[in-house]
């Protein structure tokens, strides 16, 4: 049996072999590569395309996240799943959730715009951030206008590293508005591999944020745990 998370930008497969978590990640539209030789009856699906792929059972990303995070942090009370196209805030203790998919400023797509503008890889953003000496204020809450403001800050003399750090803070501030009071806050999703964004969020929230070793596969794992 496998957990298969086919999201808006990537597809993730998880299986548990001899108690060990095995996983593979690819682009959304290459999801078939992950299930070669695996029948639909052996797949528990989640993610945006959960009902478009063969499956024995499917579960939403919200429930999958709860089960997946429980594996790493059994007493997590709030989960923030920052995906490519939306951000989900799950209040585990109050059994409540909200999804932001109307505004790009709080989604992975926002940071992707920034990386594209500077012609750098997303994974490089964290190291750029760490070299920043100053953090320019990016005040706009709209992703599109924040990008215009970013260019203004470059014109004003801030370096690429500093502007990237400023954008991480703008992004983290946007996310922080959606997060309820939590003792144990866990972040998951591909975007949280970005250490710059993570440190900005910790600074804004003034608390430690927990991240599983491989935050991108948590929902695929959760789908599997939900069923098995």
């Amino acid at each position: 049996m496998i957990g298969l998370d086919v999201g808006s930008t990537t597809a993730k497969k998880v299986s548990i072999e001899d108690g060990e978590i095995k996983y593979k990640i690819t682009g959304t539209h290459n999801w078939k590569d992950l299930v070669t030789g695996i029948g639909g009856n052996e797949i528990i699906s989640t993610g945006y395309f959960r009902n478009s792929v063969p499956h024995r059972a499917s579960v939403t990303e919200i429930t999958a996240a709860i089960y997946g995070v429980r594996h790493y942090f059994p007493d997590a009370d709030v989960i923030v799943d920052i995906g490519g196209q939306d951000t989900k805030i799950i209040d585990v203790k109050k059994n409540n959730f909200t999804i932001n998919d109307k505004c790009s400023a709080g989604t992975g797509a926002f940071l992707e715009f920034v990386a594209n503008y500077f012609k750098i890889e997303l994974k490089e953003m964290g190291s750029f951030h760490s070299r920043a000496k100053r953090i320019p204020a990016i005040n706009n809450t709209c992703g599109v206008f924040a990008l215009s403001e970013m260019i203004s800050q470059l014109v004003a003399g801030y370096t690429r590293e500093e502007v990237i750090a400023g954008m991480h803070y703008a992004f983290a501030r946007r996310i922080s508005f959606m997060i309820p009071e939590a003792q144990k806050l866990v972040l998951i999703g591909g975007t949280v591999k970005n250490k710059g964004m993570l440190s900005a969020l910790e600074n804004i929230l003034q608390k430690e944020v927990l991240v599983p070793d491989e935050p991108q596969i948590v929902n695929a794992l959760g789908a599997l745990k939900y069923y098995c």
Binding site: Y48, V59, T60, E61, I62, T63, D86, N95, N96, F97, I99, D101
Partner: peptide, 17 residues
């Protein structure tokens, strides 16, 4: 579809309650 996702997740939430 985004609303359907929320409805489906809400049903799962109610079933967990």
């Amino acid at each position: 579809e985004q609303i359907k996702l929320r409805l489906e997740a809400f049903r799962e939430l109610l079933e967990r309650s």
